[in-house]
Structure formats: C-alpha cells, structure tokens
Amino acid sequence: MKKIALVPITHQNAKQIALKFPFDQELKSIVKKLTHVRWSQTHRTFYVANTPDVKKEITKLFTSNSIIIDDQTDKILHNHLPEDKKIELQRFKKWLIQKRLSSNTVNTYTEVTHYFLKYCELKNNHDYSPRLIEAFNFDFIVSKNKSISYQNQCINGIKKYLSYKGIEVESLQISRPQKEKKLPTVLSLEEIQQVFSVIHNMKHKTLMALIYSAGLRISEALRLKVKNIDSKRMLIHIEGAKGKKDRYTLLSPVFLVLLRKYYKVYQPKNYLFENKEGKMYSASSAQKILKTAINKAGINKRVTLHTLRHSFATHLLENGTDLRYIQELLGHNSPKTTMIYTHVSNNKLSNIKNPIDEMDF
C-alpha cells in the first residue's frame, strides 16, 4: 500500500507541510489534486500550508485513494513515551488478550491508549480525569475531523485502560457522541454484473463473487478454509465471526461452479484464498481488486468491499426474503441492524406515485 509522510517545514517564513514519498507517478498525480499544492525547488518536495482545513483535505483525498498517511506534524503522535509507560502498555495489551477480545479489538484499544498516554505526557497530566479525557477527545479527534466511530473506539479503549488501572469508570461519566445514521451504498444487480464482467483473473473474480453471494465481511471471506465449504448441504460455515459467533450462510450453485474451477487451478492448501507464500490473502489486495473493477466498469459510487455485503442483503430483501433470515445470514445481533436495508430497498419506494407524474410538461 502506498504511503505519504506529512513533515513540518518552514518555507518562505511560514509553517508548511512537506509531502514526502518515493517517486511514484500515480501518487504524484493524486498529490497534484490538492488545492494550492506547490513544488519547492529549495526543499525538493511538494508542500501545502499547515492549516486545519488543508489537513482535512489531505486526509479526505488520501484515505479515499487508500494511501497511508504518516502524519509527522502531529505532536501527540510523535511525542516521546517513557519506557515505564511502554512496559505498562504491553501489560495492558496482555490483559486485553487474557479477556479473550478479538485481535482487532486488542490492537485498536492498545493503539488509542498509546495515543492517550502520549497526550498525558505532552500535557504533563496523569490524573485521568474527565476533563483530561475531554481535552484529548477534542485535540486528537474532533479538531482533526476523525469519524464518530473512531471517537467511540477511543472512548472504549480509554475505558478499558482505566478499568485495567482499577479506576472506577462509570463515575467518570464519559459521554459518547451519537452515531451517524448514514444509509449504506448499494449496487444494483446490473452494476454487480458489470463489476464481475471486467474482472478476468479467476482468483479475483471468485473472491469478489464469494463476498457478494454469501454476504460476507472481508475478514470472514479471507479466513475461510476449504473445509468450511459444505457442498452437500449447500452452506458455508463461518467460524469465529464478529462477536466470536459461528453461523451458516448460503452457498450458491452458480458460485459453486466458479469455485470448483478456481480450486482446480489454484489448489489452495489451507485458506481458500492464499497469497504466493501460501498465507492468508490480504484485505488491502482485495480492496484494490474491487477499486480497479469499479473504475473499469465506470460506476460512479463510493464502493468498498462491504458494499458487496450491503448489496447482497438489499437484493435478498427485494426478492422477498424475510428480514429474520437475512439477519441470520449476515450474523447481526439485533434485527435493528438489519432493518437499515428496508431504507435502501427499491421495492416500496418504486410503488409510490410521485405527484409530479400528474403534471404535463
């Protein structure tokens, strides 16, 4: 995955951000899309003004193009953490592992706690009061326009750390922001067909077809093993999914034909989809496959791998499948989560007669 470092510099007597990256024509063309970006002959680098608005633009542009941002202008990220705090952080991580939390949750909580401890060092404040946490919340999350879901992850991580320290968490009354109620992006059946038609690599097409036809999260698809395919019962066994739950989902007869062709050619040994070293295929590679296909198909929607799962659920609903079955297939804990697909389903909306249809233009 491509990476750009944001390095603070002083140029023409003003604070600027240098955009440092190894020469790459694609990266160069993306950087040039930034408003007011300039080239410094002195520093031999592209640069922009070091302002909050510019940093928001950088974050939006680079993340939408799957570029990793190494923000060296952030004092919190690059503040020094004393050795004793590093040791304590490792102990906290082991404590989280012993709680049998998922590896993703452990890594996320450890990372956000790392940032919080750096912030405490920066402010020379270790009382872990609600005011300190609120200040961290504003300086590290709100002012940098990070997502509400990330903000909630930070609060969860800090709460876990305080619990590990034996500090009464509930008495701190740390409030959470309300989650955004955004509707998922959904592709039509025709658009799904367009995407598959432009993918010619058999492994790539099989992986994308699996995610869509079974409504899988990308992590679930990549962890699948050959033994999880039950062709006799026409089911796929998902083991240890989100919330450490097992479930079954659909194995499409059409997809099974494609899967068998794929298996004969690639003959995976352990995971259903493996890289050249025989290890689990990466999520970033899968995302790149879909992004390339979306561009080739000329689809002007913001599409991720999760869009295929959303599309699967919406198409089931439009075909008359009961919401309770869709909930089971997707592995949702609550029917409220599945209900969101009623808002993007075309069935009900298409039956509403628009009053403008009675007018003569």
Rank of each mutant, 00 (worst) to 15 (best):
A5H: 12
L6G: 00
V7H: 05
T10D: 06
K15E: 12
I17Q: 01
K20W: 15
D24E: 11
L27W: 11
H36A: 13
W39V: 02
S40C: 12
S40E: 03
T42K: 14
R44W: 15
F46P: 01
V48G: 00
T51H: 11
T51W: 10
D53I: 12
L61E: 01
L61V: 04
Q72N: 09
H78R: 07
P82A: 09
K85I: 08
K85L: 14
E88K: 13
Q90C: 14
S102C: 09
S103C: 11
T105N: 04
T108I: 13
Y115R: 06
F116G: 00
L132Q: 06
E134N: 11
N137S: 14
I141Q: 02
K144Y: 08
N145P: 15
N145A: 10
N145D: 11
S163L: 06
K165P: 03
K165A: 04
E170T: 05
L172V: 03
Q173D: 08
K182S: 09
L187S: 02
S188D: 03
E191G: 04
V195E: 00
M202C: 08
S213L: 11
L216I: 14
E220Q: 05
A221R: 12
K225A: 03
L235I: 09
E239S: 09
E239N: 04
G240I: 09
K242V: 03
F255V: 02
F255P: 00
Y263L: 11
V265L: 13
Y266W: 13
Y266P: 00
Q267F: 13
K279E: 04
S284G: 04
S285C: 14
K291E: 04
A293V: 06
I294A: 08
T304E: 06
L305Y: 08
L308S: 01
R309Q: 01
H310F: 09
F312N: 01
F312W: 10
F312Y: 11
A313K: 07
D322I: 05
R324M: 08
Q327P: 05
L330W: 02
N347K: 15
K348I: 10
F361C: 07
